[in-house]
Simulated assay, not measured.
Amino acid sequence: MFGQRLKQLRKKRKLTMQEVADYVGVAKSTYAGYESGYRQPTIESIQTISRKLRTSADYLLGLTDYAELPAEINHNAKEYLNIGKLHWDGVPLEKGDLELIRSLMERVLRDRSLPEED
Rank of each mutant, 00 (worst) to 15 (best):
M1K: 12
M1R: 10
F2L: 09
F2H: 05
G3D: 00
G3E: 00
G3S: 05
Q4F: 13
R5H: 01
L6P: 03
K7G: 04
K7M: 10
L9Y: 04
R10V: 03
K11N: 09
K12W: 12
K12T: 07
R13C: 05
K14F: 09
L15S: 00
T16D: 05
M17K: 09
M17W: 00
M17A: 09
V20D: 00
A21V: 06
A21M: 03
Y23S: 04
G25A: 03
V26I: 05
V26W: 02
K28N: 10
K28Y: 08
S29W: 06
T30R: 12
Y34N: 03
E35Q: 01
E35S: 00
S36Y: 07
S36N: 04
G37V: 04
G37E: 03
Y38I: 13
R39V: 02
R39E: 08
R39F: 06
P41N: 06
T42W: 03
T42S: 12
I43M: 15
E44N: 12
S45V: 11
T48H: 09
S50G: 05
S50P: 05
S50K: 04
R51K: 15
K52D: 00
K52A: 04
K52Q: 11
L53C: 08
L53D: 05
S56P: 09
A57P: 10
D58C: 07
L60M: 03
L60A: 01
G62A: 07
Y66P: 08
E68W: 05
L69R: 05
L69E: 04
P70L: 01
P70A: 02
A71C: 13
E72S: 14
E72W: 09
I73V: 15
H75W: 15
N76P: 05
A77T: 13
A77M: 14
K78S: 15
K78E: 15
E79T: 12
E79I: 08
Y80D: 11
Y80N: 08
Y80A: 10
L81D: 06
L81K: 04
N82E: 14
I83K: 15
G84K: 00
K85N: 10
W88F: 15
V91R: 14
V91Q: 13
P92L: 04
L93I: 04
E94S: 11
K95Y: 13
D97W: 07
D97L: 09
L98C: 07
L98E: 01
L100K: 13
I101K: 08
S103C: 13
S103R: 14
S103E: 15
L104C: 10
M105A: 12
R107E: 11
R107S: 11
V108K: 10
V108W: 03
L109R: 12
S113R: 07
P115M: 06
E117M: 12
E117N: 11
D118R: 13
D118I: 06
